Structures are given as C-alpha cells and as structure tokens.
Simulated scan of single mutants.
Amino acid sequence: MNSDYVWIASHEALEAALPAWQAAQELALDTEFIRTHTFYPQPALLQIADDQQIYLLDLLALDQAPSRAALASLLASGPTKIFHSAGEDLELLHHWLNVRVAPFIDTQLASALITQEMSVGYQRLVETYLDIQLEKGETRSDWLQRPLTPSQCHYAAQDVEYLLACWHALAAQLSVQQREILEQESAYQAQAACEREATPWLRLKQNWRLTPRQLTVIQALAVWREEQARRLDRPRSRIASDSLLHDLAEQGPSSLVQLGQISEASPGWVKRFGAEVLSVIAESQALPPEEDPAPLLSPQSPAYRTLLKKLRAALQALAAEQQVPVELLAKRKQLDLWTQDLAAQRPLHLSEAWPEWRRLALQPRLAALQRDVGYPDALLQNALPQDA
C-alpha cells in the first residue's frame, strides 16, 4: 500500500466493502473527530485497512441507522481490530454506535510491554519497526469540513497504512505471558470506554484542602457537573471550572445572592444553573456528618511523601518482576487513593473490573505493604477485599 485509498460515503459502498473486512483476520483502524466545544467527540472519519487496501469512511455521510448497524456489527465481533493509542477511538465508537470493540489490540500497549515505555506514538512506532518517517501534518485539522483536503486524506490514510505491519513486528517479540497481559488489558480498555466515570471528583486537584463536609459537597457537585456536561453535550469546563467547584464547596452558598458573590459565578451562569447548584449544596450539607469522607492528607506533607515513596518502591519492584511498565499497574490517581488509604490505615481495594493478571500480581504485594506500614492485625486478616 502507498496511501491510496477508497473513499466510502454511501451505505451501498459500505455494504460492498463489508465482505472483505468480515473475512479478514485483522483490520487496522483509526478515527478522526472534533471535540473542541462538546463533551462527546463528534465523529468525522473512520479509517480501515486490511492487508490489501485502505478505506476512508465519511462518518458524516454514514450517520444513518443501516450504516451504523453494519459498522457496529463489524466492530463487535469478527476480525481482530488493531488500534494505536485507542482510548478516545473506543470512546467515540461506543458513543456513536453503542458498541464495545472486540476482539481488540492496542499497539501502544503492545509496544509498552516490550519497551517499558507507556506512550510511544504511532510515528515513532513506524520509524522504529519499518524505518519510515511520517509527517505529523494534519493533527489539528478540521475533520468536519467537507470536502477534506488531499493532505487530510493522505494523513488519515497513513494512520492505518503501516499499523498491521507494526503489529506483526510487535507480536513476534511478545512472550506468551506478555500476549496474555496484552489481551486482558486491551479487553479491559474496551470495556472501560463503555462505562461512565463513577468518581468524577477524582479529576479535581486540591481536594486535600477541604474539610470532610466540604468533600461531601464537592463530590456531589462533581457528579452534578458530569451529568450536566453529558446532558448538554458541553465540555465540563463550560459547565463549571474546577476552581468554581472548589469555591462552591468551600463557601457553601445558600442563596442566589451569596452564589453571585463568588467571582467565577457570572450572572448568566447563576441564572442558568444557580437553583440546581444551591439544591445540590443544600442536600449535601443535610447529610449526617458520619457519612462525610475522611479528611485527606496533604500531598506536600512528610507523611504522605513517605507513604507514596514506599508504595512506588513496591510497585516498581513488582513491575520489574512482571516485566511491565509500572504505570500499567496503577495510574497517578490510583497511587493517590492508595496513599490516602495507607495514611488512614484503610484496606487497599482492587477493583474486580481490573484484568485478572493485574489483580493477582498486586494483591500479595499490597498486602505486604500494609504489613510494612503497621496495619492492625484485624485489617491484615481481610487485606485487599475486592470491590463489588
């Protein structure tokens, strides 16, 4: 292939291409979208490549029930779908088609298992394995415009042109254990893209500055903002900034007048959201104090830093033992949650949604860490209960 492509902008053309895709063992895929002024990504283009041809699917023209159903069927089963850095692609396809992509492999994750680097880009992957240098080109392009420029189409086609070859090179280097981890983590990633964020307040920084009652309020406000962003299809920041949520939690206004005195609460914002926000705050403040979260330790405190250092050391040792990137075991937000739990001597939880290999690897290491920091015997006997 040399970046030549077939443009598909009708259901008839889609139906003509489907048999070849369904008969393939593997397909390379990518998407182009715009997400500047909306909560959900606006689909523009779906790129598909088999071992013979590249196809560019105009999702604006194919946004009709028969075409969406056909694509959903293809993505939900059949050939293995190969993506690179698939998080936003999976989210877009789930929102647009209500589909969980399967079977599915992420070549960025495959590369991470081999190189121990979590964020290797597609251009670097192609250069490493195929000795081909790609231009970044149309990264910030307007993918919703029609017609697309030749440059845009060339860029989009290249995003899948070399992906299968890269995957085959990566697959040849993966051990049996790495392949099992890759398949479990890819399946988990695909499922996670279909689920709503359960704890949107974890996106907020500086929560450790709040009292337990203020934490109750900001948790409720974060859920309210998430629901509004989804309902109105607007970015979270367009509903309320993180700093505004913190001001609301700290000041706890009980009237529109008090609400209007908060610097970021413009008259238009108060008129549109004021009554709802005051209701959320009032309901949160009416909850029994025993339902408030425990206070959080400052990340700048010596105690927090000591516990985080021990946690990181335990995970780095485990990552070296498992031959995986340490970031695959736990991301930064999870490290903070566990550090706060260690400080309060609460059980460290492992979600049942996590891939089995990860839970089995983490459980004994975190149980040992709890013993090391001096957990009471009663807690150690029930170490690491699984989330329901």
Rank of each mutant, 00 (worst) to 15 (best):
I54D: 12
R312F: 03
E183I: 10
P289Y: 06
S85R: 11
R225A: 05
N382W: 08
Q64K: 12
I82G: 00
A319E: 03
A286G: 01
W143A: 08
L221D: 11
E88P: 06
L174K: 14
R209G: 00
S111Y: 12
P212M: 07
D4I: 04
A192E: 15
C166G: 08
P289N: 07
P289M: 01
L215G: 07
I262M: 05
E88R: 09
Y155L: 09
A9W: 03
F104L: 05
L337R: 12
S301H: 08
A192M: 12
Q206H: 15
A303R: 14
L109Y: 09
Q184S: 13
A13P: 06
L329Y: 00
P288T: 15
Q285Y: 04
I281A: 07
D50E: 02
P293L: 12
H154I: 01
E264G: 12
Q123H: 06
L62P: 07
K331I: 06
E356M: 13
A378P: 01
P288H: 14
Q53W: 09
R371A: 14
Q189N: 08
A294I: 07
H349C: 11
E12N: 13
L366Y: 03
A28R: 10
A303F: 09
Q214S: 05
V270S: 12
S351D: 14
A265P: 12
I105V: 15
L182Y: 00
Q322T: 02
A344W: 13
V160M: 05
W224P: 06
L14P: 01
L348I: 10
T128C: 06
